[in-house]
Design a protein around this nucleic acid. Structure first.
Lengths: 194, 194
DNA sequence: AGGGCTGTCTACCAATTGGTAAGTGGGTGG
DNA sequence: CCACCCACTTACCAATTGGTAGACAGCCCT
């Protein structure tokens, strides 16, 4: 039953582990034990730890990109931004590991970062186009879309995921706080962009 | 010559390694070899890898906090923000590992994160006070200062350090680009805060 | 001169890591 | 019915890791 079943379970567990503890701190043995399976089963489905990590990136970040594009589809102007931010926030609350994996990948850099860049390229392209269009329409202040994109990304990602930073200013990562945080983030972005 | 000399050299190398490659990916052996010294020398000065990491946090993040407070001293309003951001950017360009260490520490969470929080508490308190004051004066839009703080932190930190994200939108981390990035970031922040 | 302290080294070690080799059992197709 | 293959296991292994034990050389103090 189902090689594919086991494969899927491994991918899920890997996403969780890599996304929260990080690549180096995740051992195949731990992963296997947590799955009730031997380490060699993992190595059977994915040839090596690196391969597993890559597969995890492809699966997880790919779906993230799809979700973001879906959130923006058919919308223009500020509502589009709002919708994407809401989607990212929902993911950050429900599957923090998925965004964690994104961050971990960029942190490690190198080949993995390239891999992720490919997965996300369509989203970035779409976002850049969106910004350019909005600027031309006069709905957004005129500047380098790339730099705006980086600022916006950093802000959203940080507010959505940096639990320890939140704690540092005395905000506990509860659901209620997340709602407030999202609202404030949207106001922040709105002020910055238009 | 210097126990203190060696100690200092170890701390420098540790800051660099922990801040760029991360805690788990940094082995005492590598560190020692890079210093032209045996691993046991490191363990003599700092009892364990954990102790070394803590000492690194104290030294590096502490100095960072001092630099930020110094940058803000005597200034009010927008020029204060500008000065602090410039300082952080200068550090990001000249000693990327120092901000990397900050990020690594928040990433690892737990006891280390607490340690760092203590080191940075004065800076955070000062920043919160600043924001509250500026809001009362009407120089800044009225909202929860804590949340504004998180947004601003995330934006600055991200734009200053996330090399891979920059690459993803086609920005190479050159010095010239850093200048443009800083200018755009300041505009972004100015629009968002006031 | 010699006892003690400091800083560094050599010599080990147990645990953990990612990975290889060689089965094993059960289901399927010819 | 039997050969084969798929999913998974047991049995190892070499390398790396953080850490301990203890020797040794220089220096300071008396």
């Amino acid at each position: 039953m189902a090689s594919s079943d086991t494969r899927e379970r491994i991918l899920d567990a890997a996403l969780d582990a890599f996304g929260t503890r990080g690549f180096d701190a995740t051992s195949l043995d731990d992963l296997a034990e947590h799955l009730g399976v031997r380490k060699q089963t993992i190595l059977y489905h994915f040839g090596s730890k690196n391969d597993l990590f890559m597969a995890t990136i492809d699966a997880a970040v790919g779906e993230l990109g799809v979700a973001m594009i879906e959130a923006g589809r058919g919308r223009t102007g500020w509502p589009a931004v709002e919708s994407v931010v809401n989607t990212v926030f929902r993911i950050a609350v429900r599957e923090p590991a998925r965004l964690g994996l994104l961050r971990e990948t960029t942190r490690l850099g190198g080949a993995w970062s390239n891999r992720m860049r490919e997965s996300l390229a369509p989203v970035i392209e779409k976002a850049r186009l969106f910004l350019t269009l909005e600027m031309r329409r006069g709905n957004m202040r005129q500047t380098d879309p790339n730099l705006v994109l980086v600022s916006a990304y950093s802000t959203v990602m940080g507010v959505a995921t940096e639990v320890e930073v939140l704690r540092a200013v005395g905000i506990e990562p509860t659901l209620r706080e997340a709602v407030k945080r999202r609202r404030e983030l949207l106001r922040f972005l709105e002020a910055a962009l238009r």
